[in-house]
Design a protein around this nucleic acid. Structure first.
Length: 883
RNA sequence: GGGCCCUUAGCUCAGUUGGUUAGAGCGCUACCUUGACAUGGUAGAGGUCAGAGAUUCGAAUUCUCUAGGGCCCACCA
């Protein structure tokens, strides 16, 4: 090695360096010569976004798979991009402008305001991109797409126009969720229901021309100004006779019909329902059935309008208070009851959603949803883990038409135009210059923009250049669409996965991806969701700063199985950092024996010892398992597999066993071992690379100057490295050494103090093996001398012993052992073996078991019984020799 | 109200078609500055797998019920 290596692993110096090199060498570009294809799109983060643990987990999962596939010979493409995030971005820039210039968007006007957002985007939009790079994401930045780029805009216009012309997109005046802070419609999916403590107000409504009163119960008394009926159940004997008569709404003194509608629950409340079609979803439906008047009582900002004269200009809350006061004065508020109920809040603004009647654009999704549902059922699209398809089904089974329009400025503007001259309305794929009907040039475009998820729904298409043929050819549309898979979190299954699948099936007649892997949420140490309000968020960049990206990625992968997420304790990352340090130092240890190379590296499996055959076999099973787990999206299993190989197999045993070899005087032996160590190290770096790319690339660079690890072939199981027989022998040897160490510890020997042992075995091969490897016993357990006897030989007195099924090991320590302690230790072991033996014997005595269990299970149990018996006999013999 | 999931060591979690001496990491205990690593080493302690029942030769694993916890959906005035 011709470079000095720092004693401690310091990730800071190497992570940025390698990312730059990968980018410069185009290491993330797909290799189009390869036959097998792996393509995946990144869920586009908001341009306004700041990296959080969710991104870190999502990106890690994707990058692990992408790197694995790339190394496994796939034509691998990972497309990154960012989302314009209509509401979030507009609100952010709006706030900034107001803070700095005290101007609202209306002061600036639509055009200038949009210009300002674009300026903001140019200036800050790559912040999130820089952060993704910090995570090591090996996506092809040449494909980077922004949802408001020209390409996606073409896609949006084309699709909108197609759906419009098919009559699936329509304009309708109906009740929608209105966010009074954003002053825009929002979709059903954007409404969060929260439990709120409220009150039931019981109010008397007079029946017209009679002394009778109807008692209605409501949680929102201020809506009475919009009441246009009172409804009762037509079967209700109490009120049946009133149907067809009129009631008088208090305060505004409006006369409204009393209607019978089976929606009304006789048991609930008073059995009498005030009907406010303009501000309640169910009332709207009742209104339609009975042809009721719809009176909107709210301004867009949520304040009461002229239809609520008595409380005009007040916020809903203030209006409620005042309404109650008036009702009290009039003595028609007859009861107030505590009541807990679910109230819709805007996901973005967190303000109370006011259902409101308004004219909006809708997409009829009934048929699209049905087809999408069938695709999942037919397993054309697989959710992993499978139970997530229930969440998907939940949405698809009863879809409500999608409210597409938003009263915002930032977004894809709805491409619908109305001719001022002839009033013809049409949708157009590009900017129209004249009315197709009357050729008038005075066209007015719809002022609204589309829901952000409309363009997100087209993401698998638009990122590959669709619908422009030239772009599609350039980007390899035919090769990469549909994508191999998608990785996302469960909270956007409705928003995004559902929309993408509907859109893509509709447009391309195929699902957009084969697999959808859903990972969980990263929560804090105590299992709480990370949130701004709790202040418990962990910034991934801080973790990277403190422990390094590799350690963080390793921890995330390690926690990411088929679960609902995991609780992230920074301590876990510390442990991963220690693992990286372990690798670093293992490399530091072997590096003086190695030379830097150019060209392929091979080892010979001729004349290698048992430990080497053992570690090669371990390497094999590690390679096999890594591939298996990564194929199955078991990031957790993959991480612990490589961890165990590096730590428990390579460092703890093979390196230790290699020390006496490397310190040998015979240079040929040293060289041979060094080559094997190098080979093993290269392989383990490759195996780990997808999870922890930086440290592996760094160490790799000490091995080779002409190539990067990112492009190497991922290890697979190789028959020539499989030595099952030697593997078993070595496993027994490890058991033996551990027992000897245990013996030493149990009598309190100092680590350096050398011992003499006596072994008793009737197994000739074991005897030979112990003899051949006696120098290892010395280096690993300070055994300076050992004598091997047949089992019929006399056991030494006053000694401590341990036993495996093949060999008894005695440590004679006349006078040094505490007899009482030793007896206790032996008794404990005897008890344990006895109970195991009993269990096994019970099975053997059970005739049903012997008759019905499969042969190999019976055989296994018999072997166990024999082994336990041998151990027990030896332990008991030793015990009696002490007493 | 409907649906999904969880309950395994002090903590965070694995345990794939029923057969393991039920595992890992962190934490804990004892000993150790052994020439890769104290961001370390060696050896340990610690679990009647939430509870009850059922199926089976055999259940952490399958089924039913109970208790506790989480999440999603839903218009209950």
């Amino acid at each position: 090695m011709n470079r000095d290596i720092e004693k401690n692993y310091d990730p800071k110096t190497l992570e940025d360096k390698w990312y730059k090199i990968w980018e410069e060498r185009k290491a993330f570009s797909p290799d189009k010569k390869k036959d097998k294809v792996f393509s995946i799109i990144m869920p586009p983060p908001n341009v306004t976004g700041i990296l959080h643990m969710g991104h870190a987990l999502n990106t890690t999962c994707q990058d692990v798979l992408v790197r694995h596939k790339r190394m496994s010979g796939y034509n691998t493409l990972w497309i990154p991009g960012t989302d314009h995030a209509g509401i979030a971005t507009q609100a952010k820039v709006e706030k900034k402008i107001f803070k700095e210039e005290k101007k609202t968007k209306h002061d600036l006007g639509r055009e200038d305001f949009l210009k300002r957002i674009w300026e903001w985007k140019e200036e800050h939009g790559d912040e999130i991109v820089k952060q993704l790079k910090k995570l090591g994401a090996s996506c092809d930045w040449d494909y980077e797409t922004f949802t408001m780029d020209e390409g996606p805009n073409k896609a949006v216009r084309k699709v909108f126009t197609k759906l419009y012309n098919e009559g699936l997109i329509y304009k309708d005046k109906r009740i929608i969720n209105w966010d009074t802070v954003l002053q825009s419609a929002i979709s059903d999916a954007e409404v969060e229901y929260k439990e709120v403590k409220g009150k039931f107000y019981h109010i008397h409504y007079q029946v017209e021309g009679s002394d009778e009163v109807l008692e209605v119960a409501t949680t929102r008394p201020e809506t009475l100004f919009g009441d246009t009926a009172v409804a009762v159940n037509p079967k209700d004997p109490r009120f049946k006779k009133l149907i067809g008569k009129n009631a008088i709404i208090p305060i505004c003194e409006r006369v409204v019909p009393i209607v019978g509608d089976s929606y009304v629950d006789m048991e609930l409340g008073t059995g009498c329902l005030k009907v406010t079609p303009a501000h309640d979803f169910n009332d709207f439906e009742i209104g339609k059935r009975h042809d009721l008047e719809v009176i909107n009582i709210l301004h867009p900002d949520g304040k009461l309008n002229q239809h609520a004269k008595a409380v005009e200009g007040l916020s809903a809350q203030a209006a409620r208070k005042k309404t109650i006061e008036i009702l009290k004065e009039k003595e028609i508020l007859v009861d107030v009851k505590e009541h807990k109920h679910q109230v819709g809040h805007g996901e973005r603004s967190d303000s109370v959603i006011e259902p409101m009647v308004s004219t909006q654009w809708f997409l009829n999704v009934q048929d699209m949803a049905k087809k999408s549902l069938q695709s999942v059922k037919k397993e054309k699209m697989n959710f992993v883990p499978k139970q997530w398809e229930n969440t998907f089904f939940g949405w698809m089974k009863e879809p409500r038409d999608w409210c597409l329009s938003r009263q915002l400025w930032w977004g894809h503007r709805i491409p619908v135009y109305t001719c001022k001259t002839c009033e013809y309305e049409f949708s157009f794929e590009s900017e129209p210059s004249e009315c197709p009907k009357c050729q008038s040039r005075t066209l007015i475009q719809d002022p609204d923009v589309l829901d952000t998820w409309f363009s997100s729904g087209l993401w698998p298409l638009s990122t590959l250049g669709w619908p422009v043929q030239e772009e599609m050819d350039k980007k390899g549309f035919d090769t990469y669409f549909p994508n191999t898979m998608l990785i996302t979190a469960f909270d956007i299954i409705f928003f995004w996965v559902a929309r993408m699948s509907m859109m893509n099936i509709k447009l391309m007649n195929t699902v957009p991806f084969k697999d959808v892997y859903i990972h969980g949420l990263v929560r804090d140490k105590q299992g709480r969701k990370m949130s701004k309000s709790l202040g418990n968020g962990i910034n991934p960049l801080d973790l990277i700063e403190q422990y390094g990206c590799d350690a963080m990625r390793f921890t995330l992968a390690n926690g990411c199985g088929f679960n609902r997420g995991f609780n992230l304790d920074p301590k876990l990352i510390e442990s991963s950092r220690n693992f990286m340090n372990k690798i670093w130092n293992a490399f530091r240890f072997i590096s003086p024996f190695l030379r830097r190379k150019v060209g392929n590296y091979k080892i010979s499996t001729r004349d290698i010892d048992i430990p080497t055959k053992w570690i090669l076999t371990e390497l094999n099973s590690t390679a096999h398992l890594m591939n298996k787990h990564l194929e199955a999206y078991r990031f957790d299993e993959a991480a612990s597999t490589i961890y165990s190989f590096v730590y428990d197999k390579f460092c703890s045993w093979y390196l230790e066993l290699s020390k006496p070899v490397l310190y040998s005087d015979d240079q040929a032996i040293v060289k041979k071992r060094a080559e094997i160590l190098r080979f093993l190290f290269e392989e383990l770096l490759k195996l780990l690379h997808p999870i922890s790319p930086f440290i592996t690339e760094e160490i790799w660079s000490y091995f080779y100057e002409d190539r990067l690890i990112i492009n190497q072939d991922y290890p697979v199981l190789r028959q020539e490295y499989q030595f099952d027989h030697e593997h078993e022998k070595m496993a027994h040897f490890i058991e033996l050494v551990t027992q000897i160490r245990n013996l030493r510890a149990s009598v309190g020997l100092k680590p350096k103090e050398q011992i003499e042992l006596e072994f008793f075995t009737d197994d000739k091969k074991t005897a030979e093996f112990i003899h051949e490897n006696r120098h290892y016993l010395e280096s690993l357990a300070q055994v300076k001398k050992g004598t091997i006897h047949n089992k019929d030989a006399k056991r030494p007195q006053k000694s401590t012993m341990a036993t495996t099924s093949l060999v008894e090991t005695f440590l004679p320590l006349e006078g040094l052992i505490d007899i009482a302690e030793e007896v206790a230790r032996l008794n404990k072991q005897i008890d344990k073996v006895k109970s195991e033996l009993e269990k096994v014997n019970k099975k053997i005595q059970n005739k049903n078991f012997m008759d019905r269990a499969p042969e190999e299970v019976v055989l296994e149990v018999r072997t166990k019984a024999k082994d336990f018996q041998t151990k027990l006999d030896a332990l008991e013999a030793n015990l009696s020799s002490l007493e």
